[in-house]
Design a protein around this nucleic acid. Structure first.
Length: 561
RNA sequence: UGGGGAAUGGUGUAACGGUAGCACAGCAGACUCUGGAUCUGCUUGUCUAGGUUCGAAUCCUAGUUCCCCAGCCA
């Protein structure tokens, strides 16, 4: 299954800015973006929005997009994430132009820092973390200047060089930009540029013991890569003055930072912290649990890159905080799989049906269409015999008004097979229905009555003698409320975790044509939904994940009461 | 109560002083061998109050609500 080429995104306010820049000749029509993840976690659907935006923008303007790891904090980062991120970006269908690491620029960053020190725009500060915090002031009160703020250039140069040389322990000193302790923007109150961290870095090893802060790395990395439009999320807006300040003091290529609203989705959480907590506390089974909004979770669930891209396209890009309804994501998947997934019949909650007038021991092969949306998908044969399974939900002893399925004395169509009429429901001692006795009409073979009589319902079925068993995992929302934070006083978001987000059907009955499916295959179980073969699946023990249900107007009808 | 942002139907998103459009959801119907898909129609909106203007979602004034910032995180 090769992904189709990604399509460029629809116009948005960022593209308007680019159009204006191109019109004014600002970068000579050149467009360069980047996707800059920190390798400290797995990518999620929120990152997908950023990926589609950055890569899509480059695609739209014939520009370039780099993948750059913002790896400035070795204590949180790991090679595992560096690898998984590349995998996920590629899986989404994008190929970066340059693959870079902020840590590749550490030498250049150091030289530039020295340059700022020489200009009197940066100084080594001996204050502890607590002291820095205390002297920063508050939102309404200015901070106070560090007693080390006015050291001589020579002393600063010496100290900074010794910081780099590893002469001081973690936290002993920092290099700070000398800007304005009274600024209304707290980011400008002499922000820390370097801290001492004797830690092994996943990409550059033990070469460094001073590490750059985000603000001192990001803009300069953008500049080095000649990024024309540096797209990030809204919370960095307040950092923009600092971003611009560093660039200006250095007199280097000036990218433009543009912020957009990050993605929020109902019935899930998106922060790395919370996702990590779900994994650590085993609310889910790892980062690729199909209930997770991670790229790997979605992939395992059965999502396709095309569906995710279509979703990102549809939600748009703007500066308003927003929360997209989960059905948008689900709908994007349905739309994609409806065109592509072959149909099969599977019974999740089997109810035995005996066709009393069907010859014992007879089997026939009935032709079924693989995909009504795609003629090229062809047909297959499904075996039919005297004993079948149908879905328990497709029989009701006392059917309500709008129920079109089987009931005592009712006739329905077995998909691609025959009309059957229910004669009797057999019960056990406790009154539970154990099987149905039905008759079939031989004249309706294939599913149509020669006398033109119509039937209200068509249900799916599987021949008992030919069925194969499988485990099917049914997923529901991770949270019970659209907003995970919508909890009573004194409780937190975890109170909204859905205890029924996973239900396992251990003995579903599938039509035998499904026996050779491979991990990752996607199929529609007719009338039930789209399913994906899980990585736990083995040829002798198949496992399917329900990616998404089909729209179900009967379920909706029932809810109305 | 410092600074920076944002407010358009249920949810998103357009409009750039000139008919508030589109998508998803919802409702009603058509069609249907998936109560799927497809098709048709419909309901629902400019945060509030003033002002400028022939004309305001758009410009001005004042308010309201929400988000972000006080890591040696990104």
């Amino acid at each position: 299954m090769t992904p189709n080429a990604p399509t460029p995104p629809a116009a948005n306010f960022i593209h308007q800015i680019i159009d204006e820049d191109n019109a004014s000749g600002k970068h000579g029509g050149r467009v360069q973006t980047r996707f800059p993840p920190e390798p400290n976690g797995y990518l999620h659907i929120g990152h997908a929005k950023s990926i589609c935006l950055n890569f899509g923008t480059a695609l739209k303007y014939g520009g370039k997009c780099n993948l750059r790891f913002d790896d400035t904090n070795p204590v949180k980062e790991d090679i595992e994430y560096i690898e998984s991120i590349q995998e996920d970006v590629r899986w989404l269908g994008f190929q970066w132009d340059g693959l870079y690491y902020a840590s590749d620029y550490f030498e250049q960053l150091y030289e530039w820092a020295v340059q700022l020190v020489k200009k009197g725009k940066a100084y080594v500060c001996d204050l502890s973390a607590e002291e820095v915090s205390k002297t920063r002031g508050t939102l309404t009160k200015p901070g106070t200047e560090s007693p080390y703020r006015n050291r001589s250039v020579e002393e600063n140069l010496d100290l900074f060089q010794r910081m780099k040389a590893g002469e001081f322990p973690d936290g002993a000193r920092t290099l700070r930009a000398k800007i304005d302790m009274a600024s209304n923007n707290i980011n400008l109150r002499d922000p820390v540029m370097y801290r001492i961290l004797h830690a092994t870095h996943p990409h550059v090893g033990d070469k460094w013991c001073i590490y750059t802060m985000y603000d001192w790395a990001h803009g300069q990395s953008d500049s080095i890569e000649k990024i024309t439009h540096s797209i990030c999320t809204l919370e960095f807006e307040i950092h923009r003055p600092l971003y611009d300040w560093f660039i200006q003091e250095l007199g280097i290529f000036a990218p433009r930072q543009i912020e957009f609203a990050r993605l929020n989705l109902t019935y899930t959480v998106m922060s790395k912290r919370r996702l990590l907590e779900l994994v650590k506390n085993q609310y889910v089974h790892g980062w690729s649990d199909p209930r997770m909004p991670t790229i790997r979770g979605l992939r395992r669930r059965g999502y396709t890159p095309e569906a995710i891209r279509a979703f990102c396209e549809r939600i748009g890009v703007a500066r308003n905080d927003s929360t997209i309804e989960m059905v948008w994501l689900e709908d994007a998947l349905r739309e994609d799989l409806n065109k592509r997934a072959e149909r099969r019949m599977a019974v999740l909650k089997p109810l035995k049906v005996v066709l009393t007038n069907y010859p014992d021991g007879q089997t026939e092969e009935l032709e079924a269409i693989n995909n009504p949306e795609d003629e090229k998908a062809g047909t297959r044969k499904a075996p039919f015999s005297k004993v079948l399974y149908i879905e328990r939900d497709d029989f009701m002893e006392n059917p309500p008004k709008k129920y079109f399925r089987l009931g005592p004395g009712r006739e329905v169509r077995l998909r691609y097979a025959y009309f059957i009429k229910c004669v009797e429901a057999i019960k056990d001692a406790s009154g539970e229905i154990t099987e149905l006795h039905c008759t079939y009409d031989p004249a309706t073979r294939g599913g149509n009555a020669p006398d033109g009589r119509k039937v209200q319902g068509t249900i799916h079925w599987v021949s008992a003698a030919h069925a194969i068993s499988a485990e099917v995992r049914l997923y529901d929302h991770l949270f019970v409320k659209p907003d995970a934070d919508d909890v009573p006083e004194g409780q937190d978001w975890r109170a909204n975790l859905n205890p029924n987000s996973l239900q396992v059907v251990t003995d579903a009955k599938l039509e035998p044509s499904l026996k050779d499916v491979k991990i990752g295959d996607k199929v529609q179980f007719e009338r039930l939904g789209y399913f994906c073969v899980d990585e736990d699946s083995k040829p002798e023990a198949l496992v399917f994940n329900r990616a998404v249900t089909l729209k179900d107007t009967w379920a909706k009808e029932q809810k109305k009461g």
